[in-house]
């Protein structure tokens, strides 16, 4: 493929000729980037209880199921949701606390890459998946996954029809910019991210919203009232 080698320079030359005032390097461009106007809301103003209430309301508005519990009640709450849904075989990433894998159900643990990872067929045949998440954004009812050991590989939350996601109150922010500052605090920019707002959906036929196409048809979120939530 010699063609791919040869077009790089011509394209970059054309681009640079078209933008004579452009910065010579990205490092130089960053300086003017920092001066860009950002007058939008970057920090929410809601109290903690209203923020959590908004999160739950927005999740439900886009067809997610929601419930709440205290931290010590979580295993029981997971068991209750599983029982209610009638799902028996579940996949889960390796990084979940042992007590979340409540007895009475068939758990298949995915150990990520290499040995011990579940094959696609096993994940596809599971009734559901249980994961943690990185953050919840109340404003849009969004759950954000960074696909760490407690959130699982991307395929894990994609093929099963039912996704049970544990969201701690301390992980809920009001606005999307607050997610980005949290993400920035925790590390450099994440390499893999999935923003999930409700179950998969389409409105391609006459703009009628249909829940559940290729991704999980059901999203179920348990909000855990953990202790640091009260502090913020």
């Amino acid at each position: 493929m010699t063609s791919t080698v040869s077009s790089r320079e011509p394209i970059l030359n054309r681009v640079r000729a078209a933008t004579p005032d452009g910065a010579p390097s990205a490092a130089d461009a960053q300086r003017s980037w920092s001066a860009l106007p950002r007058d939008y809301i970057r920090r929410g103003s809601l109290s903690a209880p209203s923020r959590l209430e908004l999160m739950m309301e927005r999740l439900r508005e886009y067809d997610a199921e929601t419930s709440e519990c205290r931290l010590e009640e979580l295993p029981a709450a997971i068991g209750a949701q599983l029982t209610r849904s009638g799902r028996r075989t579940l996949v889960a990433p390796e990084g979940l606390p042992q007590e979340w894998l409540v007895p009475g159900f068939k758990w298949k643990i995915d150990h990520g890459s290499g040995n011990g990872s579940l094959d696609i067929g096993e994940i596809e045949r599971a009734d559901g998946v249980l994961t943690a998440c990185f953050c919840g954004v109340a404003d849009s009812g969004t759950v954000v996954l960074h696909h760490t050991a407690a959130e699982g590989r991307r395929v894990l939350t994609l093929l099963p029809d039912w996704h049970l996601c544990i969201l701690r109150a301390s992980q809920v922010v009001q606005t999307l910019p607050e997610y980005f500052s949290r993400s920035h605090e925790s590390a450099s920019a994440p390499a893999l991210v999935t923003w999930i707002s409700g179950p998969s959906a389409t409105a391609d036929i006459e703009m009628t919203r249909i829940k559940g196409v290729h991704g999980p048809r059901f999203l179920n979120v348990i909000l855990v009232r953990d202790e640091d939530a009260a502090a913020t």
Partner: peptide, 15 residues
């Protein structure tokens, strides 16, 4: 307010 799925990835990741 937000589309159901937004995916971001960076190069490749083993597994």
């Amino acid at each position: 307010r937000m589309n159901p799925y937004t995916s971001l990835w960076t190069g490749v990741r083993a597994g």
